[in-house]
């Protein structure tokens, strides 16, 4: 991208995103005949539609009349076509309602519609973990597995308890070297990382829990990661034919945060395929030096594929 283009690209992108989030009143001008529900007709007039306020401004000789969308019965274009639904973005011609028809939240229809589609989800998945940053230097990706219990609190919000074993391993788990021509040392390193998370999840509820429907979700949470490190070494001395064995184990637990998103594709009423991604941040250590706060972190990116039962 040229420097001049780049100069304007990001500012304009910011403004565009803002406008998408908070649209300003959009005005469109057209010609036609407007018939109000009261029976009044404005024939062959110019009018502007304001979707922000849901008002149509009709221009008649020397005057302007503002009419709310709900007062309009129909708008007919110059070719005689009823364009009410297209222009006012109404999917059906509205019937004249004259009485309140609101349903109480205790009404069985509303209660049924707002009833949670599921209470508990049990999920098993495999994960492909990719560690990053200084803390995980020398540790490579790997395939692990995980399990979750998801408790629906409302139709859109759930709590998620997750335990996940990451498959990441040392990039060179085995090394051999000779500190002396007579001696051969073989060392093996292992890592076993298990994550425990408690997250809040937002999910998009489908209308019905039927095969083919999708549930989209995202979550973020807090937890801990436990690393179990193992070291096994053997030293063989050729001249004496002696074999020395040494091993050590260490465990380290760190605070961690996670966020993720995914999609459940329902295969049946209660079973679905779950596909997701997650990003974990591991808080390794932090301290203040003379000038500023120093934090050292590690990251784990995960791709997940599993099965979920929604009960």
């Amino acid at each position: 991208m040229k420097a001049k283009t780049r100069y304007l690209f990001y500012p304009l992108l910011t403004v565009l995103l803002f406008l998408l989030a908070f649209p300003l009143p959009v005005l469109a001008a057209a010609n036609g005949t407007i018939i109000l529900k009261s029976g009044q007709e404005y024939r062959n007039v110019t009018f502007k539609i304001d979707h922000y306020y849901k008002v149509v401004t009709i221009f008649i000789t020397d005057a302007m009349i503002d009419v709310s969308f709900n007062e309009i019965d129909s708008i007919i274009d110059n070719e005689g076509m009823d364009v009410t639904n297209d222009l006012l973005k109404r999917l059906h011609k509205e019937k004249k309602r004259s009485r309140e028809t609101w349903r109480s939240k205790t009404d069985p229809v509303i209660k049924k519609a707002r009833t949670k589609l599921w209470n508990t989800g049990i999920r098993f998945a495999s994960n492909f973990s990719l560690p990053a940053d200084d803390y995980y230097e020398g540790i490579g990706e790997g395939i692990g597995f995980e399990g979750d219990i998801i408790v629906a609190v409302t139709n859109n919000v759930a709590l998620r308890f997750s335990v996940s074993k990451s498959g990441m391993q040392f990039e060179d788990p085995k090394s051999s070297f000779s500190p002396h021509p007579d001696t051969l040392v073989t060392a093996e390193y292992g890592i076993n990382a298990v994550r425990y998370y408690f997250s809040a999840e937002y999910y998009h509820r489908p209308d019905r829990k039927t095969p083919g429907r999708s549930i989209y979700y995202f979550y973020s949470g807090l937890g801990a990661i436990n690393h179990k490190l193992s070291f096994d070494a053997t030293m063989y001395v050729k001249s004496t034919r002696e074999l020395f064995i040494a091993s050590d184990r260490a465990s380290e637990t760190k605070f961690a945060t996670t966020c993720g998103a995914g999609m459940i594709q329902l295969l049946s009423k209660n079973i679905g395929i779950d596909l997701g991604v997650a990003f974990d941040m591991i808080w390794v250590r932090s301290h203040y030096n003379d000038y500023s706060y120093i934090g050292v972190s590690g990251y784990i990116f995960d791709m997940k594929l599993g099965v979920i039962a929604l009960l």
């Binding site: 109404r90 059906h92 509205e94 309140e100 609101w102 109480s104 939240k105 229809v109 707002r114 209308d207």
Partner: peptide, 22 residues
């Protein structure tokens, strides 16, 4: 007086304001 429902006809019932909201 009355606050009536002039939402589009296909507006889902459970997404409308309730009688309690009104």
């Amino acid at each position: 007086g009355d606050i009536i429902d002039e939402l589009p006809l296909d507006f889902e019932e459970e997404k409308k304001p309730t009688a309690e909201d009104i």
